[in-house]
Design a protein around this nucleic acid. Sequence first.
DNA 1: GGACAAGCGGAACACTGCTCCGTATAGTTA
DNA 2: TAACTATACGGAGCAGTGTTCCGCTTGTCC
Lengths: 198, 198
Amino acid sequence: MPTTSHSGDVPARSKRADALRNQQTLLAAAAAVFVTSGVDAPIREIAARAGVGMGTIYRHFPTRADLVIAVYRHQVEACAEAGPSLLASADSPLAALRQWVDLFVDFLVTKHGLANALQSDSSGFDALHTYFLDRLVPVCAQLLDAAVNAGEIRPGTHAYELMRGIGNLCIGRDSDSRYDPRRLVELLLQGLQRPQSS
Amino acid sequence: MPTTSHSGDVPARSKRADALRNQQTLLAAAAAVFVTSGVDAPIREIAARAGVGMGTIYRHFPTRADLVIAVYRHQVEACAEAGPSLLASADSPLAALRQWVDLFVDFLVTKHGLANALQSDSSGFDALHTYFLDRLVPVCAQLLDAAVNAGEIRPGTHAYELMRGIGNLCIGRDSDSRYDPRRLVELLLQGLQRPQSS
DNA sequence: GGACAAGCGGAACACTGCTCCGTATAGTTA
DNA sequence: TAACTATACGGAGCAGTGTTCCGCTTGTCC
């Protein structure tokens, strides 16, 4: 199995030195631009910021999703790893799930437009969608299962659906004081809890 | 107060006959195109379908949101009017709320991309956002209040937030069998119910 | 140093939103 | 009916963006 190396992080060997340098430059530039202009920023803007041509971007990151993934990989990884450790440290599986979801929401709402991109049907964000889900759904599923087994929440909810729902709730203008994604996510979690002695 | 007439429905008088005809033609064409290509369909496509120039579209509907509003006005109106009548006919305020939300979700999921447009921060969808909210939030608020007063749900949730949350949950590729917006909306409503004798 | 593959840059093309203005015509008046 | 004018129409054209492609540059290896 040829460990495809996923075009990010510690880069594959046997590339030319300038290519490696450019890849890092691009990641830094993209990260900076994403902060100010969101993940939908024009490719030209990122290229200009990095001082490279557009061809260079497309060579390193064939789709925008590839670039986004590379930029945020560390954080996604951290979120994924937090799952099991929260499960071990928290008071209960439900508490762990709650904290984990909080982490996930944090991540989404601080990255301008990321939640949008995660759900957008058209455009080439499929890879992003896939990556996020592949990496985080199993983690979420583990937390969910644990909470179900502990009898804290009702069974029947799939991690995939829950995560997409949470992602969706985090979409929107982040400067609208009347809309706080966290409150709704909390409502969703409340709904998940099995009706106490109904 | 000069009843701005909102560029839809029974059109304002004192326009040329051909203009009126074109307006109707455009509405029909847009409705048809929205079904197949979603509310993000290229303006050119709608113009071609209607057999008019692009200038004509922009004259009648200065922004895309105006066009969308005009096309769906009847249905939004129907949804708004359903609120009070459900409240009168349903078994309980909560039941009424539930049915109304169902109606709302129906509307959103059958209009390809509408839910997306409703939340999109950029682009000129502001008018759409405003129109929907102005028209439907009061209705939702009435249902919500009634349910709170009946002691069926906990107080503290704002209609605006709830509606945006529901709208958000309805975003997404409508052909993903693993994601059913209705299930999540139901979860949200569950979360709304006051904890039974906790 | 020289050869050549790897990499680079950005012009060019495609697609879209939106504007602007010359042309056509509905409705009016004589 | 014929002329006239306000109204409306059409679509060329501009601007912004994604994406490709190819001639030129440069790192690497001998």
